[in-house]
């Protein structure tokens, strides 16, 4: 797993975003064990303290949970997972909306374009 980080945003936030994306996409399944902070730091080639910070932030957001003397796991709480998905979508839509904001287009005009982009992407993945 190699993640390209930008140098101006806090790395722990970039780590969280990266992990959230993996949760939303199902790459990290609910209940699955997380690598230790050392393993994760080594995989991502970043400072273990940064991973530690990302983990505790995610724990606070209840995205992961830790039982005593066990590795952290991804949450299985559907409410939290739904919330995460919603949040992720909202952010994406926000970005999209503000990006197309300068162009005056109605939703009816946009919809076929979005549909086309989606199907192109699915083909590309296949």
């Amino acid at each position: 797993m190699s993640v390209l980080f930008n140098k101006r945003d806090p790395i722990y936030l970039q780590v969280i975003t990266h992990l959230k994306k993996q949760i939303v996409s199902g790459e990290l399944k609910p209940g699955i064990e997380m690598p230790s902070r050392r393993q994760m730091a080594n995989q991502m080639k970043i400072n273990p303290n940064t991973v530690q910070r990302a983990y505790s932030e995610m724990e606070e957001q209840r995205l992961i949970f830790t039982e005593p003397n066990k590795p952290s796991r991804i949450t299985e709480d559907p409410a939290v997972l739904n919330q995460l998905k919603k949040e992720w979508l909202n952010q994406a839509i926000d970005r999209f909306v503000s990006a197309i904001d300068p162009i005056d287009m109605s939703l009816e005009e946009l919809l076929p374009m979005i549909q086309e982009a989606l199907s192109n992407r699915k083909k590309a993945v296949k």
């Binding site: 140098k7 101006r8 945003d9 806090p10 790395i11 722990y12 936030l13 940064t50 910070r53």
Partner: peptide, 14 residues
């Protein structure tokens, strides 16, 4: 370094 990125949005090089 992390606090610098978080509070001022600057990299170490910056």
């Amino acid at each position: 370094a992390e606090v610098m990125r978080e509070t001022e949005g600057k990299s170490v090089i910056d």
